[in-house]
């Protein structure tokens, strides 16, 4: 520990940059989360009305019609340039940068303190994405590092050896194998059957069963987040949906359970691959050290369902849901920031 920084407060920050939400956890005790939406007023009139140059999270969603609206981390990475649409890409990068700056602001750093941040980036983020993220953060912090999100979750819980992390987000499910060193590409599998996929499946099942019901994907997501479960005995999911504009009661329990359950097989399939390619001696241990994290892990009974499916397909398995799915990544990143030696931070200044 160096003496030169004595009495100079240091604010450590862990940031979890996700498709649907960005969370920050800081060493001043602040924990905040903002939906990963960014919007810029479309024209001068809207700007005057909204009195802001940029809006975030729920506020951006609320005013989306008068905004150029971005979800900069769709599918877990900065939306990359589709050919001929480079202007779009630039805007997206800017939105991501503004979102990171907002996350840092939410942690209320003091001007007289050093701010060191670790950002848990999606495992599959590309190099140029990473650079953009770092650029964005450096504007506000003194030093910044990136690390992979599932790694941050495991590190935060001190589960370093022979662990399988399942991080269920909105756009992606990240499966990550930890074996004492930093995970490499071969240790990670990314699936698209995540939260958005469940919303999609749920919508289709509702439409099939109740073609007369009118709903939007936002409504479906809201219902899911309130009732989601894969348990045979689950709370009845009875909700009002409009039929020709008139609110009508529907029992959506079965479609919801079914939609949520569809998430299980691909996950266990992926886990199976990561297990099969692991040192046979430790495969058993690995199967019994599975961590379930991310917003999607809040589906009730999901840990047991994955565990059962593992028993059926892989012979055994123990799945533990982390205590704070929303802040798991940010808390882990904070711990990494905190444990990082001083001179490392200084070299990156």
């Amino acid at each position: 520990m160096t003496e030169e920084n004595k009495d100079h407060g240091v604010l450590y920050m862990g940031i979890d940059l996700g498709t649907s939400r960005t969370s920050v956890s800081a060493s001043n005790g602040i924990r905040e989360t903002v939906a990963s939406y960014v919007g810029y007023p479309k024209d001068v009139v809207s700007q005057k009305l909204l009195k802001k140059d940029v809006l975030f999270g729920a506020e951006a969603v609320k005013h989306r019609l008068s905004l150029r609206f971005y979800r900069p981390l769709e599918h877990g990475v900065l939306k990359s340039s589709e050919k001929g649409k480079s202007g779009d890409y630039e805007e997206n990068v800017r939105a991501a940068q503004d979102l990171i700056a907002e996350a840092i602001r939410l942690a209320k750093p003091r001007k007289d303190e050093l701010v060191y941040a670790v950002i848990g980036a999606p495992a599959q983020a590309q190099i140029h994405n990473k650079e953009a993220i770092i650029d964005a953060a450096r504007a506000t912090v003194d030093s910044v590092m990136l690390c992979s999100e599932p790694f941050a979750v495991a590190y935060g819980l001190d589960w370093l050896d022979d662990v399988l992390v399942i991080d269920i987000g909105a756009g992606t499910v990240d499966l990550c194998r930890m074996h004492g060193t930093m995970p490499e590409d071969t240790d990670q599998i990314t699936l698209n059957t995540a939260g958005d996929f469940v919303d999609q499946q749920f919508s289709e099942l509702i439409a099939e069963k109740h073609p007369e019901a009118q709903f939007t994907i936002q409504m479906v997501r809201g219902i899911k987040e309130r009732f989601a479960s894969v348990a045979a005995e689950m709370e009845k999911c009875v909700v009002d949906l409009p039929v020709k504009g008139k609110p009508t009661s529907f029992d959506l329990t079965d479609p919801l359970r079914e939609a949520c359950r569809r998430m299980v097989p691909p996950i266990v399939e992926g886990l199976g691959q990561l297990v099969a390619t692991f040192d046979p001696e430790f495969q058993g241990r690995l199967k019994n050290r599975v961590l379930l994290a991310g917003g999607g892990s809040m589906i009730k009974g999901l840990d047991s369902a994955i565990q059962e499916e593992m028993h059926a397909r892989l012979g055994e398995g123990t799945v533990v849901r982390i205590e704070e799915p929303i802040y798991g990544g940010a808390n882990g990143a904070l711990k990494i920031a905190h444990d990082m030696p001083t001179d490392f931070w200084e070299q990156l200044k």
Binding site: M1, T2, N5, K6, D7, H8, G9, V10, L11, Y12, A26, S27, N28, G29, I30, A107, K108, P109, R110, K111, E113, L114, H338, D339, M340, P341, T342, W345
Partner: peptide
């Protein structure tokens, strides 16, 4: 004004 960090010094493992 911001909220002060709990840490007085740089920490490290």
């Amino acid at each position: 004004s911001g909220v002060a960090s709990i840490y007085r010094t740089v920490q490290g493992l």
